[in-house]
Amino acid sequence: MALNLPGPAACSRLRDLGASVVKVEPPRGDPMELYCPAWYARLHDDIAVRKLDLKEEADRRAMDELLLRADLFVTAQRPSALARLGLGAGALAERFPKLCHVAITGHPPPDEEVPGHDLTYLAQAGLLTPPTLPATLYADMAGAERAVSTALALIIARDRRRPSQAAYVPLSDAANWLALPRDYGLTTPGAMVGGALAGYNIYAAKRGWVAVAALEPHFAAALAEAFGFERLTIDRAATVFATEDADHWEAWARPRDLPIVALRTASLPES
């Protein structure tokens, strides 16, 4: 019963892992179907969509029938909204004792009612570089994967007769998890994978850009040898990469078993 992105993304992953999924939407539908119809369609392939007005008695009974047969209930509403519908954690545990519940929220308790979206979670985690917007919805997608792993853990715990059958999946926690390499200084500017290494960097080619991930010493040594250098440096690598197009370097690297890729520009999938 989760609209927009993290819930449907999580459930599409569960579908790909073999789950049978029923999506319950309000009569007005899911807003994502309007603002991104192609991806909405892909996320809901082989997923049964039911439109139910949970303020109506008949539709509430239909919802109860679904929950009675379900292993897992995924929501992305505030706890207060679920409670008003009679779907709060306490009511679910009492009426559906075999049901596992993953509640995707913006923040962990006691701030689970605080509003937010991907952009604000990334901002709080220090993962934005203004004024540029993120290239993708990092917190939402990481939160979706966290919802999947949490769901599987709950089901395993239930099947092993452990008591825990419900869990919050805060998207802000997912953003904080993504920020850990930066928080520990691994990716800060000038750090090991923050631009200090010649073998782990981005270089301008004659046309385009290349990403070089020769992080391990044997990769860096092989790249230096291929360039005819005793030791690889950023300046030397930049000079060489500037002599050919990015696509050339990707093709050049493949038979040499070197991790070098030309940067792609974003492209929209075919509708």
Rank of each mutant, 00 (worst) to 15 (best):
N4H: 15
G7Y: 08
G7S: 13
P8A: 05
A10G: 13
S12K: 01
R15M: 01
D16W: 02
D16E: 09
G18C: 05
A19D: 02
A19N: 07
S20H: 10
V21L: 07
V24T: 08
P27L: 11
G29D: 11
D30R: 08
M32E: 12
E33D: 09
E33S: 05
Y35M: 11
Y35V: 15
C36L: 13
A41I: 03
D46S: 12
I47N: 10
L54W: 04
D59P: 12
A62I: 09
M63C: 11
D64I: 02
L67I: 08
L68W: 08
V74M: 13
Q77Y: 02
R78L: 09
P79C: 06
P79E: 06
A83N: 03
L85C: 04
L85R: 07
L87N: 14
G88F: 02
E94R: 08
E94M: 01
R95T: 05
R95Y: 07
K98G: 12
K98C: 15
C100G: 05
A103E: 10
G106C: 01
E112H: 03
E113T: 06
V114F: 08
V114Q: 09
L119C: 07
L119S: 14
T120I: 13
A123H: 03
Q124A: 10
A125C: 09
L127E: 12
L133P: 10
A135N: 11
Y138I: 04
D140W: 00
G143E: 14
A144H: 02
A147D: 10
V148I: 11
S149P: 06
T150Q: 08
A151Q: 08
A153W: 07
L154R: 12
I156C: 11
R160D: 04
Q165A: 14
A167C: 14
S172W: 01
N176C: 06
N176G: 12
L180C: 05
L180Y: 03
P181G: 11
Y184D: 00
G185H: 00
T187S: 04
P189K: 01
L197H: 09
I202M: 10
Y203V: 10
A204L: 03
H218P: 06
A220Q: 13
A220H: 08
A220W: 12
A222H: 09
A224W: 05
E225N: 01
E225T: 02
A226H: 00
F227K: 01
R231Y: 05
R231W: 12
I234K: 11
D235M: 07
D235Y: 07
R236A: 13
A237K: 11
A238Y: 00
A238R: 09
A238D: 04
V240T: 05
V240Y: 01
A242G: 06
E244R: 04
D245S: 10
D247F: 11
W249H: 02
E250D: 04
P255N: 00
D257G: 04
L258M: 01
P269F: 09
